[in-house]
């Protein structure tokens, strides 16, 4: 039953991807990308990744869509020109797809408990929580405790990206576009 729900949602995902590929109105593309994110969040829910699903629904469907729409507004997003058909890109994509299929052919079957992935590290984390040594939500425990150095790195990446956006969009403004943030531009 789980597999069937999963398959239906994945098929819808394929349809939306094809729509994004062939759609030329950028506004529609951005909204389709938001729908794609919501579908992906549902699939993550079926795949038991509840924390990830919640993040994807808030970030992928909410904030990314808002940022895309803001950029569309700033760039006067119109329908773009028909790009000429590129044979090389088809070739590259087909080659990459072939290699991916070749590489993924020997992967363990979907949802099997005996896969090597489930037998090495994960049981230790699960047992610590089962024995009341760690909080019940294993994902939080791994994220903020066992691998807190990784999370420190991720937080720093977010910090860096945020500072980068502020510098790109605000630093060195043209003098004619003076507005409420003019005092920040003196620093650069």
């Amino acid at each position: 039953m789980e597999i069937l729900v999963d398959a239906v949602l994945l098929t819808l995902l394929v349809v939306i991807t094809l729509a994004i590929l062939f759609q030329r109105n950028l506004f529609a593309v951005v909204l389709l990308a938001g729908a794609y994110s919501f579908l992906m969040a549902s699939i993550m829910l079926v795949l038991d990744a509840v924390d990830v699903a919640m993040t994807e629904a808030a970030v992928g469907a909410g904030i990314s869509t808002a940022l895309f729409l803001a950029t569309l507004y700033l760039t006067h997003g119109k329908e773009y020109l028909q790009p000429n058909f590129k044979f090389q890109s088809i070739l590259v994509v087909v080659l990459a797809g072939g290699m991916l299929i070749w590489g993924m052919w020997d992967m363990p079957e979907f949802g099997v408990m005996q896969a090597p992935l489930h037998e090495n590290t994960a049981p230790g984390y699960l047992d610590a929580s089962k024995n009341h040594l760690m909080p019940p939500n294993v994902v939080t425990a791994v994220l903020a405790d066992y691998r807190s150095f990784d999370t420190l790195g991720e937080t720093t990446v977010i910090f860096t990206a945020g500072i980068g956006v502020l510098l790109i969009l605000r630093g060195r403004k043209k003098p004619k576009k003076s507005k409420n943030k003019a005092e920040n531009s003196h620093e650069t």
């Binding site: 990744a49 990830v52 993040t55 970030v59 489930h118 699960l126 990206a161 956006v165």
Partner: peptide, 21 residues
Amino acid sequence: NPLPHVLILTAIVVGVATLAL
């Protein structure tokens, strides 16, 4: 398995930050 969930959880938020860049 909780381990891939942790990896992807941070990847999503970092992903939106780089997308904004």
